[in-house]
């Protein structure tokens, strides 16, 4: 078992790319539906490598996001911890689901965390427009899940990250 524990850097590389993707400038109309890259990555790694990536990693990553976005320290950390928690809670079911069913469950998970995000955002003193548009990133992320799943799975198996 311990012989295969190399290549852990790939996980961190994926988080680095996820961070970049979450701040890359995009046109206005695409920004509203920007996928939750980090939540997706956290979900995948928590689901398939629960002994390597868990709530601690999610929390630390969230702090980096907070610094990058200039939000209150702890805001995105809490959201990502919540994603990790919900995925770990559902992992036994999620692992045997087909991909499309995983997508559906993750839609609910991401929707919930987006709701928490919005709530924290309003607590921090902002007035977002009263629309359901904040759920769009959750939908986009859930639709992206099968592709990301396939890509990360092939990387994980090829590099034998365990």
């Amino acid at each position: 078992m311990s012989a295969k524990t190399g290549n852990g850097w790939v996980i961190w590389l994926s988080f680095g790319i996820g961070l970049l993707l979450s701040i890359v400038p995009m046109p206005e109309f695409l920004q509203v539906g920007r996928p939750l890259w980090l939540a997706l990555l956290i979900s995948y790694w928590t689901l398939y490598l629960p002994h390597r990536v868990g709530m601690t990693n999610a929390w630390l990553l969230g702090l980096v996001v907070d610094v990058l976005n200039g939000t209150l320290l702890g805001q995105n950390a809490l959201v990502l911890v919540l994603v990790s928690f919900l995925v770990q809670l559902l992992q036994q079911r999620l692992r045997i689901f087909p991909t499309w069913q995983q997508s559906l469950v993750l839609l609910v998970v991401f929707g919930l965390t987006q709701l928490v995000q919005l709530w924290l955002y309003v607590l921090a003193g902002n007035r977002p427009p009263p629309t359901l548009l904040f759920l769009l990133p959750a939908l986009v992320s859930a639709l992206l899940w099968p592709w990301l799943f396939a890509a990360l799975r092939s990387i994980r198996l090829r590099l034998r990250i365990n």
Binding site: W59, G62, L73, G74, Q75, A77, L78, V81, L82, A124
Partner: peptide
């Protein structure tokens, strides 16, 4: 663990704000 991290986050946010 969730409780610990949530408490930490909320405390951080409160202090930061």
């Amino acid at each position: 663990r969730l409780l610990v991290f949530a408490t930490l986050s909320v405390a951080l946010m409160a202090v930061d704000a």
